[in-house]
Design a protein around this nucleic acid. Structure first.
Lengths: 152, 152
DNA sequence: GACATCTTGCGTCTTGCTCGCAGTCGCGAC
DNA sequence: GTCGCGACTGCGAGCAAGACGCAAGATGTC
């Protein structure tokens, strides 16, 4: 957390300014990564971002996408969270922060408000001095539909 | 959860019986995987398990280790949890269940009692009908030592 | 417009893990 | 003790996500 996340919405003009102010450059590719994440709303894989950009810029390289996601994350524009599979999911950081539940059985993804997770974060801070980032990893388990079947 | 985890300790004789009872076989390799996990106590990678076994059985193959970990997990002898990196960590299932905190900065691993996580699990169950397995994924964040430095 | 340097695309490599297959070996039956 | 079924192993190959180094190109400041 060397950079503070942007305050307002994902305004492209502001984003460009902030990116330039940090000594980085606003390139076509970088703008398209931001674009793609905005259009996808959330929980997109790097591969999906690349696919979206490819419609407008066919020669985009996967490694460029990875590097840009990383760069935008270090500027606080983007965050990633780990779901059950090995794939990292990315989304815009300025969306309302939320936690993720993911069903082990049907892979359903459920968003939960951070207020639900806050009490745990508070206890971890108080009892272990640990600053938890509970939005970062999905909570694995069984959803309402799958839990009864698995209980048998 | 088709299999119930074994009740007692990781007794090799009992393990062998249960494994045979399930129609599987107790092979040298399988015994050594169990052995290695017992000796490592917890949070071992498949690669580490393979390395330990290699001292006694040099020709052990990584895929054999993966297959055995999976087989032992389906019998309830072993569980895995996901840490921050891409590597899956394995440990014996009969150890006292606990949660994991992992520091994003120094990679320190902290174990916390399940009682700490229980309130969250209860709320997820009540409010979302979601049966969370909070031991399955580590909580990512910053440990007591690293948090102050990062806050600047 | 020139120039320093950040960024891209490309090729290659690494890591963690999976799969198919042929041969091996555990274990219950006789 | 030995037989035979089939679970299991080792091996080779493969896969997907992602990292890395480098030369060429683009960006933004002066």
């Amino acid at each position: 957390m060397t950079q503070r996340p942007p305050g307002g919405g994902p305004d492209q003009a502001t984003a460009a300014d902030r990116i330039r102010a940090s000594g980085r450059r606003m390139t076509v590719q970088r703008r398209l990564v931001l674009d793609a994440l905005q259009r996808a709303r959330h929980h997109t894989t790097a591969e999906d971002v690349a696919a979206r950009i490819r419609r407008q810029l066919p020669q985009i390289d996967p490694s460029t996408v990875y590097r840009n996601l990383e760069a935008l994350e270090s500027l606080g524009y983007v965050t990633h969270t780990h779901f059950e599979d090995r794939v990292t999911r990315w989304h815009l950081a300025d969306e309302r922060r939320h936690g993720h539940l993911v069903c082990r059985s049907c892979s359903a993804e459920i968003e939960v408000p951070m207020t639900l997770l806050e009490p745990l974060a508070r206890r971890l801070r108080q009892e272990h001095g640990f600053e938890a980032d509970l939005a970062h990893s999905a909570v694995v388990g069984l959803c309402r539909a799958c839990a009864p079947a698995a209980a048998r």
